[in-house]
Simulated scan of single mutants.
Amino acid sequence: MEKRKTLVLSVDRDDDIGYKARIESPILGREACLEAAKRLGLADPEDSDVNAIFQAVKTYDELSARGEDVIVSVIGGSHMNMLEGDRKIADSLSQLINQTNVTACILVSDGAEDDFILPIVQSRIPVESVKRVIVAQMPNLEGTYYIIKKLLDDPKTARVVLVPIGLAMLLYSAAYLWGRPDLATFFVVGAVGVYLLFKGFGIDEFFGYLLSGLQQSFQKGSFSFVAYITAVLISIIAVIMGLTSLLVYYPQDAGVLLFFAAFIYGSVWWFVSAGIVGIAGKIIDCILHEQEMLSRIVIIPFFIGAIGTIIYGASSYLLSISNVPDFPISAGGGVQTIIIHTVAGLLCALIGIYIQSATGKWVIDGKKSRKW
């Protein structure tokens, strides 16, 4: 029977140990964990992760005293990006398991994010127990104020809480300065609503990935950096053209559907161009440096073109049958337009699939020839 080897694990999901104490994780061993707890405690004595690390070391000592084969470790995630942090935790844990050959785990945490951490750990190793460290303190008004103050000092919480409040106050002041106090509530509610939708649908993370990719391409000196900047500028033009189209083709009180149709009619080709330019830069980088990824990326501009073509046809059809003044396409022409553009979009997608298949074969043949 194989002897059990237990891992006592403390997970710092927001990587305070790296962000505040400047310690790279994973941290392995009793002395290394104690040193990490001491440095984090000196950097921020009020951080609950300090107590979690000490609890992990205490659990390690108790199990070692009973003669069990046990090791202790601390793993950190990411302070600013939870998705990347969770992936880092999973990778670090897999690396730790392969390195130490542990067969079971005791998870120690401060109880704040167990619902996120526990499934990640369980996907890699059986969890025999979860120990939560809750620091006892007197719940009074001063303590509540102190907790709120600490939350607002954290950059992650500040971005979520302070940004919508600050934006609402700024728009409210701007409406009064503009001499239109009647629009103040409209601006504030609309801006906060858009912000909440961005957070709810994770669009802010999408833009975060775009900024991260832009930064990485700049640091590597990649051609895609120039392409991304160009795509951003074209996207700004797309928004301007969409708003111009709204002024020309959107009748007052015509409804939300025609509002979006008018905006898309004027902006869709600019957005398509921005997407194709950005992806073209990535394709050039793949050809030069990462040919194995080329077959997965080469299809994207064709799909962007296909979707843009179909959406343009649909918006043209909606505007043509809505009796919009001065719209260049008649109702009969709108039916023809949507049919032609739908067929063209589908053909564009099929061409992209064919080129992706041919590119995949080319990459495979190139690898074989290099081996020979």
Rank of each mutant, 00 (worst) to 15 (best):
Q137T: 13
D44M: 09
E62W: 04
V11E: 00
G29R: 07
P126A: 02
L257C: 00
G366W: 07
R296A: 03
G305Y: 04
F186D: 03
A349D: 00
S295H: 14
I234L: 10
Y249G: 04
E142H: 15
D12C: 06
F206K: 14
G143N: 13
L211C: 06
S123K: 15
V272M: 09
P301L: 00
L93M: 08
I340Y: 15
R4C: 00
Y172Q: 04
V248L: 06
I117L: 04
G85H: 04
M169V: 15
R13S: 03
I321R: 14
G18I: 07
Q291S: 09
S123D: 06
W372T: 12
L196M: 07
L171R: 12
I304N: 06
L350T: 12
D61V: 12
A90Y: 12
I237S: 10
L288F: 06
S73M: 08
N81M: 02
V335Y: 13
A231L: 01
V160M: 05
A261N: 05
L318D: 07
Q336A: 12
I237P: 03
F187H: 10
S173M: 08
C33G: 08
G18N: 10
A280D: 00
L211T: 13
I279F: 09
V272T: 15
T100W: 06
A254D: 00
T230V: 06
Y249F: 14
F198V: 09
H341G: 01
L171T: 10
D16S: 15
G29A: 02
I75Y: 05
G166F: 08
T337L: 05
V363M: 02
N323C: 02
A21H: 03
R66N: 08
G305D: 00
L162S: 13
K220S: 08
G333V: 10
I17A: 01
Y146P: 13
Q219R: 15
D91N: 15
F187R: 10
V121A: 04
I71E: 10
R124A: 05
L177N: 14
G366Q: 07
V57P: 07
N140T: 12
Q95Y: 12
C348M: 14
I279M: 08
A261G: 04
P119A: 02
G85Y: 01
G352D: 00
A254E: 00
S92V: 05
I237Q: 11
L210F: 14
D182H: 11
